[in-house]
Design a protein around this nucleic acid. Structure first.
Lengths: 148, 148
DNA sequence: CTTATATCGCTTAATATTAAGCGATTGAGG
DNA sequence: CCTCAATCGCTTAATATTAAGCGATATAAG
């Protein structure tokens, strides 16, 4: 059985994908310790962060922001709610929606840890010039935008 | 409590990171169905793929390639071994190492499904020109290369 | 109104994943 | 020959994650 030999353009695509995955993993693995140190999982941090900046959101919207499925969001929110960092409130306009609000404690926590996190992100991304960051962002957006 | 307002360069870094994560998620979520259809998890597919192209490897090396921890690799290999897609063999030179080989069935499976997978990757990456793919690859490599 | 379709949060079952630490093995330095 | 540190695969416990499907709600069409 002869081994599959990809064409040049397939090889390029495969190689690019590997580099994309490695970069994402590399960055998030360097950010992980800081988040775990604050006593949060990455998903929990993501939820607090998005509500802190975007304001109260329903669970589906949060799931789209932090790239997790709805079943998972339910558990993440459960755990945050147990620690009184967020609270649920069912929407009166559309009773299918459950809006998630930051509690005072949740706001205090994210307010405390976010600046350090942001500084770490900046340090990591400074491996690229600002123009390179913009170009990377553009390429990533172009790649992700395709409807699937 | 006033909300944290990041400087412009922090904002750029944060935005770039979000786009990177979204792109990676977008691509892999489009590839996932094809892999699951073949009866493999993404990690299992990754193991078969890397051994198929790189030849037999020890578990640690595989873990580095597919970005998973050693404990996880043990389970992934366990499951592949149960299905007789790979086999373990302890190295005689360094008895700490366990080298993973593709079985005939494993080779047949990856040989069968990889071309379709590769074609899908090419289709997805064709949202970018070849030059853009090379530039994306360069930026990702530069970002990931930093020793952590 | 009624039916059909879609959406949302949730539950369930199965699996994946991680961090932490352990025993066996290796190699280096005294 | 001995430690000693490092490496490798593995185990364990805890948690995360997913796919699939359910019930409640909303919306649109007839």
């Amino acid at each position: 059985m002869s081994k599959f030999t990809p064409t040049e353009c397939v090889r390029l695509a495969l190689g690019t994908l590997v580099k994309l995955a490695r970069a994402e993993e590399s960055v998030s693995s360097r950010l992980r310790p800081g988040i775990l140190n604050a006593g949060l999982t990455e998903s929990q941090f993501g939820v607090l962060e998005v509500i802190y900046f975007k304001g109260p959101l329903c669970q589906r919207a949060i799931g789209e922001k932090i790239l997790k499925t709805s079943g998972n969001i339910t558990m993440v929110i459960d755990n945050l709610e147990k620690r009184h960092l967020v609270r649920r409130e069912r929407s009166s306009e559309d009773r299918r929606h459950v809006t998630i609000y930051l509690t005072e404690q949740g706001e205090a926590l994210i307010h405390e840890i976010f600046p350090g996190h942001a500084a770490e992100v900046r340090n990591i991304m400074q491996a690229l010039t600002e123009d390179e960051q913009r170009e990377l962002g553009r390429l990533c957006r172009k790649l992700g935008k395709q409807e699937s």
